[in-house]
């Protein structure tokens, strides 16, 4: 329940931030198109967040997870 409330809150806040960007006149100094694209940072943040979580948890984690005693008995000292 609390999770749903938080999701709703952050969706509304996100929407408000984009609305602010639309309403307030912004003096952009764009070097690339995304610098002046309204709401780009919200979209990038959302997609980027998903990419990082998916890559970390579903791709990297199965590859790098090991038993905690991996180096025991290897006489590394």
């Amino acid at each position: 329940m609390e999770e749903k409330k938080l999701i709703l809150t952050f969706s509304v806040l996100g929407f408000l931030s984009i609305l602010t960007e639309i309403i307030v006149p912004v003096d952009y100094h764009p070097y690339y198109w995304w610098h002046a694209f309204i709401g780009f940072d919200y979209i990038f943040g959302a997609i980027g967040g998903v990419i990082l979580i998916v890559v970390a948890k579903w791709i990297l984690f199965p590859i790098v997870k090991r038993d905690k005693n991996i180096y025991e008995g290897s006489n590394e000292e």
């Binding site: 999701i7 952050f10 969706s11 806040l13 996100g14 931030s17 984009i18 602010t20 960007e21 307030v24 912004v26 709401g39 780009f40 940072d41 919200y42 979209i43 990038f44 943040g45 959302a46 980027g48 967040g49 998903v50 979580i53």
Partner: peptide, 14 residues
């Protein structure tokens, strides 16, 4: 506003 949007979206995804 860019940073605020980025953080709101990342928190939403988290």
């Amino acid at each position: 506003i860019s940073k605020i949007q980025l953080f709101l979206a990342a928190t939403f995804m988290f």
